[in-house]
């Protein structure tokens, strides 16, 4: 009996080992590498669960994605800063259960005014830009700079 159980355990260990060895690079970055100029993280080419998990990783380990070009599709969100009155635009991603959401703010490359140049909040948008982040105490704000919204 023990032999059979040990065999099962060894098979599982081998299976787990296979998964851990399929890494594209030894350092196992959170996003696959890409050539210069190309989109490094294309979230429009992924399933909903993958997009949610990838954005979660980007928000939790933003330094790994800094200066990488990112393309994402999600719901358009907007909020106004109470102090400065400035508008902040965001692309919001929901998980498969639609109960959890992650959002990334974007700053348009060209000057745009709300509401004339933007869709209605809640509408689906596709944005690409360069990933960056700022810190405010313990809070990390992720931003897509030089962002371009696709028609």
């Amino acid at each position: 009996m023990k032999k059979k159980i040990w065999c099962t355990l060894v098979c599982t260990a081998l299976l787990a080992g296979t998964f851990s060895c399929t890494s594209s690079t030894p350092s196992a970055p959170s996003a696959p590498a890409s050539s210069e100029g190309a989109i490094a993280v294309d979230l429009t080419d992924m399933s909903a669960n993958m997009v949610y998990a990838q954005v979660y990783n980007m928000v939790n380990a933003p330094e790994e994605y800094r200066r990488k070009s990112v393309k994402m599709r999600g719901l358009f969100g907007i909020r106004q800063d109470e102090k400065t009155g400035a508008w902040h635009y965001g692309c919001i991603i929901q998980d498969a259960l639609a109960c959890c959401a992650q959002g990334i703010e974007f700053i348009p490359e060209k000057e745009m005014t709300f509401p004339d140049d933007f869709p209605e909040p809640g509408e689906e948008i596709t944005v690409s830009g360069v990933f960056d982040f700022t810190t405010d105490g313990q809070t990390i704000n992720c931003i897509l700079r030089q962002a371009v919204m696709e028609e």
Partner: peptide, 14 residues
């Protein structure tokens, strides 16, 4: 499978 979080999910799941 190129993404580490997918491999982590499979290892932990198994």
């Amino acid at each position: 499978l190129q993404y580490p979080f997918v491999r982590y999910a499979l290892i932990v799941g198994v």
